[in-house]
Write a protein that binds this DNA or RNA. Structure first.
Lengths: 365, 365
DNA sequence: GCTTTACATGCAAACGATTGCAGTGTCCAC
DNA sequence: GTGGACACTGCAATCGTTTGCATGTAAAGC
């Protein structure tokens, strides 16, 4: 590894003092230096391939040009595009991202924040906050810039980039109503997350606005955004005995679970029950059936979050104003939604018993 | 942001010199200090919540405890588990990962390596190398520790963690042969990558060993590991007019493309043609049909690569021996493979023309 | 022509850790 | 009682930057 060239080397080459070189190299202070000398310094630093030493820089300035990105699990397909967006935007500004996975565990979360903090990150992008988040409270006390992406906390003073969940839910329901559905079930996500909460609230209010049958028993809450919960909730809906012709799911993975559960009961999607997802994660178009869902701009969200954060970092702490950005969404109609077919409506049991829906199996008939 | 506590603060609190504190805090030098004093120092540092300043540490020691992870695109589903493995293993050792995406572009790759280098990473994990890789050559000149994961370069002096491609291909072919297939096509991956190359070579040699019909025209090379190439290659295979009953693909995405292409021609998988993938990326079990594939231990590979790298970093440069690890693989049989059905063999055209296979549509018959 | 002003540059002190070396004190041996 | 060995701790230099202040010089003002 060839010896790194330092300011001193450049200074020596040009025949000036290191401080002069330092000033000439920083665009903000370059005006202090005679243009002709500055020019010679620039040339020399180029020629010698000078690279400032990041450690020395941070030691002196207390800025690392590094930001932490905290996600629950990078393995969850909705996060990579977000992370990619963050990194690309960061790179444009000369910043770097350090990635950390919490697995959604509070203990791990705290430990990670600790390490990231003493590592001296300049700010944090959080993709995993709950509506009331302990980690956020702690970071707030440290006065370190943060912005949440995808989800938000219920405080106005924390910057965020989210998607228009209300509009997304409106589009989903409008689409189903257009197809002729009136009895629509909802598998709502965990209410401790802003996404779960807002989609649920939007479902209720839009359903009312559209004049669709309201029924408490057609809403069931998942305890996590995963396939297993989708299956469990669907089973619960079917066992509930209340007829429905469509299931609106709070995210794609719940929807995938729902379709699997329907299939287990001998019900076909969309023939017997239409199903919608939310997020438009990759590969959805290759599923069977391809999933109708809401597309959100994940990459864009990540990029904007990063820009917002850098803005906050480079601004004086006193006039930092947390901004909130809401990105538009789009309905993607695929094969998992179709008009209800009254003749084959599996979810409208004739009997009344809890297991009514199960015993009925139109696909086998 | 409360003022950070430094060595000096701890020293003051205990009434000793900073150097004493420094030594007491480092397990390697702790024996130099009177146990009783060391104890008081430990307690005080705990009480004051002392965290060493990473910048000062690196400035002095030239070690950042940070390693760079270079992948083509984190959005590609095979990488997240690898990255996760790297990060978890790294965290255990007190190291951090900085992630960078190259998009497979050589220019971007070089720029990224540059930035990572002056950032002072202690080593690099490369998940995107070609068999003859310019970036690797450059890094070699810098004498910075590197290990490649998933793919390898054709040099013995670069540490690597890969999977047993030969055995994987053997299992795939044995499975197909067991089912009764004798005319098996191969969509080989790009030969500039070790994975593409080795799987192709293994295909050829295992096919010969099993005594299956060899036919040059049943092998076609994809220019990338993606769905589009899978479609294109399958079309080429079908247009070639040489009959076959199964397609072995060099990775899952090629297989997904292959199945789509078959469907476009009115052929069903596995009824008309069996298809196999490679890698077992997520969601494959939810596809239609669920894909038979080779499962590789991605997380494990990432973790081992990280361990290997840290080992190299902490060893004196002179006796660093690049190690090569080959991880076992496993066959996962799902729904995309079935015994050949001679009656409905779409890929056995009666005519001879280039488009023969196309005109024939058993699914419609 | 001498002071004033402005500008360009050098000086030196940080930032917070690590580490070779020197110093102090204790103990033991001769 | 003196010398040496040993164990501990302090001193001070150092890593590569940034930046307030001092210094030097040239242009400008009277």
């Amino acid at each position: 590894m060839r010896k790194r060239v330092t300011l001193k080397d450049v200074a020596q080459a040009v025949g000036v003092h290191v401080s002069t070189v330092s000033r000439a190299l920083d665009p903000k202070t370059r005006h202090l230096i005679t243009p002709e000398i500055a020019d010679r310094i620039l040339k020399a630093s180029e020629r010698l391939d000078y690279r400032p030493n990041a450690a020395a820089y941070s030691l002196k300035t207390k800025r690392t040009r590094t930001i932490g990105v905290i996600v629950p699990d990078i393995t969850n397909p909705i996060f990579p595009p977000i992370i990619r967006g963050v990194e690309d935007a960061l790179a444009d500004q000369g910043y770097f991202a350090i990635l950390a996975n919490t697995d959604g565990k509070a203990g791990r979360e705290a430990a990670i924040a600790d390490t990231l903090l003493w590592r001296g990150v300049d700010g944090l992008v959080l993709a995993s906050v709950e509506r009331h988040d302990r980690l956020v409270e702690r970071l707030l006390a440290e006065a370190i810039p943060i912005v949440t992406v995808n989800r938000r906390v219920e405080r106005e003073d924390i910057a965020s980039v989210v998607h228009d969940d209300r509009d997304g839910m409106r589009r989903v329901l409008a689409h189903l109503a257009d197809l002729g559905h009136t009895r629509i079930a909802n598998i709502a996500g965990p209410q401790s997350f802003s996404t779960g909460r807002e989609r649920y609230e939007a479902f209720e209010s839009v359903r009312a606005a559209l004049g669709l049958d309201p029924d408490r028993r057609l809403v069931v809450f998942a305890s996590g955004f995963n396939e297993d919960e989708g299956e469990r909730c669907t089973a619960e809906l079917l066992d509930g005995g209340v007829p429905f012709t469509a299931i609106v799911c709070s995210n794609d993975r719940l929807a995938i679970g729902a379709i699997a559960a329907l299939r287990q009961r001998g019900l076909a999607c969309p023939d017997d029950v239409s199903v919608t997802g939310y997020n438009d994660m990759p590969m959805l178009d290759r599923l069977f059936p391809p999933l109708t869902t809401i597309r959100i701009e994940q990459y864009q969200a990540g990029a904007m979050a990063a820009e917002l954060l850098v803005e906050m970092i480079e601004e004086a702490p006193e006039h930092r104003k947390p901004r909130h950005i809401v990105l538009p969404v789009e309905l993607v109609v695929r094969g998992s939604t179709a008009p209800p077919s009254p003749a084959r409506n599996a979810a409208r049991p004739k009997g009344r018993g809890r297991k009514a829906a199960v015993s009925e199996n139109p696909a086998a008939g």
